[in-house]
Write a protein that binds this DNA or RNA. Structure first.
Length: 299
DNA sequence: CATTCGTGGCT
DNA sequence: TAGCCAAGAAT
């Protein structure tokens, strides 16, 4: 293990300057990266960006911060307003968790987004990635930030394979820790720069190696771009799933300004058994409330 | 460790 | 066209 680590350290020494220079010249001007962005703005962006492309997050993030400039502003409103404002970003439970996190921040942290990883990861909807990202991007702390982009860039440049394993393992985490620059500000810039490289150049489907600042250092490229040979990557189905049904039902309630009769929900999904199951799960998740014998609404 | 949980753009 | 993919978390 000592030899690979030493080799990786050597390689990141070579990667560091080209990646930082590339980021300096090519970084997107995103609102949560602006000098005036608050920790709350960063936190909102991280929730919205979980499994959701930047282009779709941008307008919702802007409206969200205008309406709720602080955690206290959001916490003061009903959870259903968060679900409504979430719009069609997908995974609406994230809206509930963001609301719950805002309430916890008001209750336990004086209304200020905490700056420590331990306090952050204790918040609803905040896992390892999001805690590290908020601590790093909002407060400039030094943490291993492992998202899908970073994992793919390291898999290719350092490990010489097209895609990382399905879940983060210990060796991968140690590798990322070993290539993290030592001082805080450089570590933070390194993390966002590697992430940006993965998002813009070292993409999953069609990497633009010709525009990559570290193409000549990339282990995967040096090996001749060997095809992925791991276990088949999961492809989630959509048509006909409970998730599609839940989405249809919730969209009806989101677009209504008053409680909706059951018959309007019946109209958007033909299969009664599945529809009932989906509605029950939405009620269980507290994304929907029953307001009368046959009426439903956002909470 | 494997599943579940939205949505829309792109190839 | 039918996948494939996008700054994951909770269970």
């Amino acid at each position: 293990m000592a030899i690979p680590v030493a080799r990786h350290n050597l390689r990141v020494t070579e990667l560091l300057d080209p990646v930082l220079d590339w980021y300096d010249a090519n970084a997107r001007d995103l609102p949560w990266r602006s000098a005036s962005a608050t920790p709350w703005s960063v936190m909102v962006s991280e929730f919205m960006l979980q499994q959701t492309p930047v282009s779709r997050v941008l307008p919702v993030h802007e409206a969200w911060l205008e309406r709720w400039p602080t955690p206290a502003d959001l916490a003061a409103e009903p959870t259903g307003e968060a679900v409504r404002a979430w719009g069609r970003l997908g995974y609406p439970r994230r809206a509930l968790r963001l609301h719950a996190a805002a309430a916890a921040i008001v209750a336990d942290h004086g209304g200020e987004v905490p700056d420590s990883y331990d306090d952050l990861i204790a918040l609803p909807g905040v896992g390892d990635y999001t805690a590290a990202a908020i601590a790093t991007f909002a407060y400039g702390k030094r943490h291993v930030v492992l998202d899908t982009n970073v994992r793919r860039v390291f898999a290719r440049t350092l490990s010489g394979v097209e895609f990382p394993s399905q879940s983060v393992n210990k060796a991968e985490r140690e590798l990322a820790a070993n290539v993290l620059p030592h001082d805080e500000p450089t570590a933070a810039t390194w993390s966002v720069a590697v992430m940006e490289l993965g998002a813009l150049i070292c993409t999953a489907a069609k990497p633009s190696c010709s525009r990559c600042p570290v193409a000549d250092l990339c282990a995967w490229r040096a090996a001749g771009h060997p095809a992925y040979d791991g276990p088949p990557r999961k492809v989630q189905t959509w048509a006909g799933t409970d998730r599609q049904c839940r989405g249809r039902l919730l969209a009806v309630l989101r677009d209504a300004d008053s409680p909706v009769h059951r018959t309007r929900l019946d109209a958007v999904w033909p299969d009664e058994t599945q529809r009932d199951r989906a509605l029950a799960s939405l009620l269980k998740d507290a994304l929907v409330v029953k307001t009368g014998p046959e009426t439903y609404a956002l909470p």
